[in-house]
């Protein structure tokens, strides 16, 4: 029997590109979109796991799952080019699934249908930074989950030992029974290059488009605004005492960072 590994993939704006607004909405025309960088670690880990298991004689299929508008399919093709076997695209043209809860519900339907033995995701998406979707999905699927993982060792195909860094340089080590969901942190690996041969193959790989299941979002971002321009540096003049007094006054009254 073929084991399936699912990889959650989100398309996000490149953090290097400058966000611009049109009214109170984001102007997407000047934005460059990429695969969420944390999801890349998940992609690579799925490929590695596939290699390990296949060496041990187990057939494995890797499936990328993405939710988003039609245009986001580029991200799916990108990860197929890196080597994942096929993709499922949950189409959400109008952004109906607007919060982690609704997205995770939509993902749940697909994941249940696929029957993944293991699911990888990035620890968070760098656009909304909610840090919640994958975790909620694990709850929906009622499978164990560990987040922010930086090392994974499999013991056969049923157990995994995972590591994550916690404050102060110490590590937490978990043993986890599969099926399970793991979210990846930096340091887990580095996604390989999409080779030309794989890019060509990716164009022919299967991408199944499915409609958005009926989900209920609890919230949606109404409007956006840019942070105000940082004020210019102010030089305080005078002798030591006047300078100190003026500084305290400014911090209190203008910057409002200390109370009175």
């Amino acid at each position: 029997m073929t084991l399936k590994i699912g990889v959650l993939v989100k398309q996000v704006p490149d953090t290097n590109s400058k966000i611009q607004l049109q009214g109170d909405q984001i102007d997407a025309s000047g934005l460059k979109f990429v695969v969420n960088p944390y999801d890349e670690f998940g992609v690579e880990e799925a490929l590695k796991t596939k290699e390990i298991w296949e060496k041990a004689g187990q057939k494995v299929e890797t499936v990328a799952v993405l939710l988003g508008p039609k245009a986001a399919q580029k991200a799916l093709r990108d990860v197929l080019a890196v080597g994942l076997d096929r993709g499922v695209h949950i189409l959400d043209e109008e952004g109906k699934a607007s919060d982690p809860k609704s997205v995770s519900e939509a993902l749940k339907t697909v994941c249940q249908e696929e029957g993944f033995h293991l699911i990888f995701a990035g620890k968070q998406a760098v656009d909304s930074d909610s840090h919640a979707t994958a975790q909620m999905l694990a709850e929906h699927l009622k499978i164990p989950h560990v987040g922010v993982v930086s090392k994974i060792d499999f013991e056969g195909k049923e157990m995994a030992q995972v590591e994550r860094a916690v404050d102060g340089g110490s590590k937490e080590i978990f043993k986890l029974k599969l099926p399970a969901l793991i979210t990846a942190n930096k340091g887990l690996n580095k996604m390989r290059m999409a080779s030309l041969i794989n890019i060509r193959k990716a164009a022919k790989k299967e991408v199944k488009e499915v409609p958005l299941p009926s989900v209920q979002a609890d919230w949606k971002v109404r409007s956006w605004s840019l942070p105000s321009e940082r004020a210019a540096v102010k030089m305080i003049e005078g002798d030591m005492n006047t300078q100190a007094a003026e500084l305290v006054r400014l911090l209190k009254e203008e910057a409002k960072v200390i109370g009175s």
Binding site: G83, K190, R192, M193, A194, S195, L196, I197
Partner: peptide, 13 residues
């Protein structure tokens, strides 16, 4: 290595 397998040192990536 690069075109067929995407296999190159990480720094190259």
């Amino acid at each position: 290595l690069v075109l067929n397998r995407g296999s190159n040192p990480d720094e190259a990536t």
